[in-house]
Write a protein that binds this DNA or RNA. Structure first.
Lengths: 370, 370
DNA sequence: CAGCCCGTTTACAACGTTGGAACAACGTTG
DNA sequence: CAACGTTGTTCCAACGTTGTAAACGGGCTG
């Protein structure tokens, strides 16, 4: 092992505790001893053993961030902000991926107790509110991006219902009338899907427009591609493709995702689509373009998440941009309060968002050619 | 704190060590005692305190993965594989971001020594081979994705020179003659940029074609957009845009990146571009398309990394697909060997790659309409 | 039945750190 | 100059775990 306080103490000719005091900036150390100790510290290039410190103090300085998958751009971008926000507290972040699987989510929630981490920021998909409530563990927990009503834990998210309503209103404001929602889910218990769907419904109802709802199994490009293809061909067939290996070439023909249900007059092609996230929208965009239709002229397209891809696609993607930095900071702050033992009733906090109108709903003045 | 071995021992009426033996599956424990202890363990829902175990054993079971930025899709995808590969060793992974800044890289390399992690998988950009060699620390280290010749540490990467040559050959094979390389860097010391440039040069030289090289500062979409715009307008102007907030709207007009140098006849528009990564390619694609030109008819475009975005862009992006899973597994294996103290001379290992030909170089049979 | 072996269990120490009590040195006060 | 407070330093214990060595006890051998 490396050099310990003991080694430094021997070299400096003082006690171990005095060295500890110097290291921790304890006030009452005479300048002379401090100098001696500091020289010894430097000479031996001492580094505290954090395992030992943690054992002693019962803290590890590490938090876990559990999310469905790191290679979904939204989560990658969010992780970046969480890591940065945690760094401000001098915390390290370990990342755990659940793939949205219930079993994994249980395991994460449970595994927190091995004392390796001080707290958990958790973006659940499959697990239900009841199960979360039944948690016996008292490790600090903050939920991110989900809304479990009256949940047992702190929670941060944007106002998904309102955001969905806003963007649907935007599409309506363009004069579109056959506006589809793409991204409803049958299975998801605690997902944001129902919230976004609710927002879409509110807007459609307010204007007396018929609902067209396409469901997907997951939130990948492949699912958006499949569901959009189904919308275009008017059937529930030709869907599937949760597998993304190989990309588009593999999509179509397999699987069972992508049901489409219209309230009235299903069969006519939609003239606008609100996708519940940007990945779905990019998959859908590809499906529209490769069917020979134009975006936005034939079909206006909007997403939600504001991932970077959507700022460079052709056309660029209109979307809702959650304030990811704010989300991360709020989550870390809440967690810090829990860890520090400042117990409150579970809180629901909202982060802001902005509507980003881009070419997929409103073409630039000079239609093409920069 | 939670329940400890001690608590369990008291309940089961045995010594602490016996409980420890049961927990660790030590062979010589009588069935009767084992049963008693196991019941007590279950009743108290015991979880080992890993801080203590680590202190005792000098291992933390945590490794660090340091990379430039998590929100670059290539690194996000790679991280996913590293986390999964580490999980097979029952390791957790903390992620550190360097933003490619030298100071951060130094800090990471140095900070490893606080005993919080057993090893480090490091994807450096700025730091030089000399500095790496001068490292006094002996914590396990594996370099990922860089090639520091005769470096002081284990190293995994694909054969960048050959991959770049292959893809350039592919472009040449299409009959293109004015093929640009986009992604050279002035500053990067240890980056892959020089290797990819070398591969490009080998291929061009072999066919007697003139080189056209565009430099960038970083590897983001904005840089690709700016550099491509410069290539199209034939000047070195209108570049910049390392900042990616706000997307394309902000790119152009600011900054100083994007020099273009041709060996002969610069000024004519290239008919193919090999971008040193997919993000650059996607930025470049957007620049080409919004200038009114077509991909691949007017300009064929290829990238490197095989990020998922390129499988759904319009047109889809021809690229080199490194075997990310293999990269991750090799890195983790090498690290494991180091951590286990099996010392070898530093090793250079290669992961495989595949050329993925897509629409951006070869349009599908039925040019449009699925 | 002494001696021995072997399987099982325990006591002890140690990993490196820090909180708290104890203690020493020193200057101040009455 | 005794009592006292302040400042600086040390000693001890403890965090929870596991390696080592030793103790225990039962069955077998000689």
């Amino acid at each position: 092992m490396g050099t310990s306080l003991r080694d430094v103490a021997v070299l400096a000719g003082v006690s171990v505790k005095t060295v500890s005091n110097v290291v921790n900036g304890y006030a009452h150390v005479s300048p002379a001893t401090r100098a001696k100790v500091e020289e010894a510290l430097a000479r031996l290039d001492y580094r505290p053993n954090l395992s030992a410190r943690n054992l002693r103090q019962g803290r590890t300085g590490v938090i876990a961030l559990a999310l469905p998958e790191l290679d979904a751009p939204y989560f990658a971008e969010l992780s970046r902000f969480v890591i940065d926000a945690a760094a401000e507290q001098r915390w390290l972040v370990v990342i755990e991926q659940t793939d949205g699987r219930l079993e994994r989510e249980r395991q994460i929630l449970d595994g927190v107790r091995d004392h390796r981490v001080d707290g958990l920021i958790f973006s659940p998909i499959a697990i239900g509110a009841d199960e979360l409530a039944a948690r016996t563990d008292d490790t600090a927990l903050v939920l991110l991006g989900e809304r479990i009503h009256d949940g047992p834990a702190d929670h941060v998210a944007i106002d998904n219902v309102r955001a969905a309503r806003d963007i649907t209103e935007h599409l309506i404001g363009l004069g579109r009338t056959r506006i589809a929602a793409l991204g409803a889910q049958d299975s998801s218990i605690s997902g944001t899907a129902p919230l976004r769907l609710a927002g879409y419904r509110q807007a459609m109802a307010a204007h007396g427009l018929p609902e067209i709802v396409a469901t997907v199994e997951r939130y990948h490009r492949a699912d958006g591609f499949a569901a959009m293809t189904a919308l275009l061909t008017g059937g529930t067939g030709d869907a599937g493709g949760t597998e993304d290996a190989g990309g588009i070439e593999d999509a179509g023909g397999i699987g069972d995702a992508g049901g489409v249900g219209g309230t009235g007059g299903a069969g006519e092609r939609p003239d606008a689509v609100f996708c519940f996230n940007d990945l779905l929208a990019l998959g859908a965009m590809r499906a529209i373009l490769s069917s020979g239709l134009r975006v936005p002229e034939d079909i206006a397209l909007a997403g939600l998440d504001d991932i970077e891809d959507g700022r460079y696609s052709t056309p660029t993607l209109t979307t809702v941009a959650p304030d990811k930095s704010q989300l991360a900071h709020i989550a870390v702050d809440l967690l810090k309060q829990r860890i520090d033992g400042r117990a409150h009733a579970p809180r629901e906090l909202r982060a802001g968002y902005r509507l980003m109108v881009r070419e997929s709903t409103v073409p630039p003045p000079a239609a093409s050619g920069r």
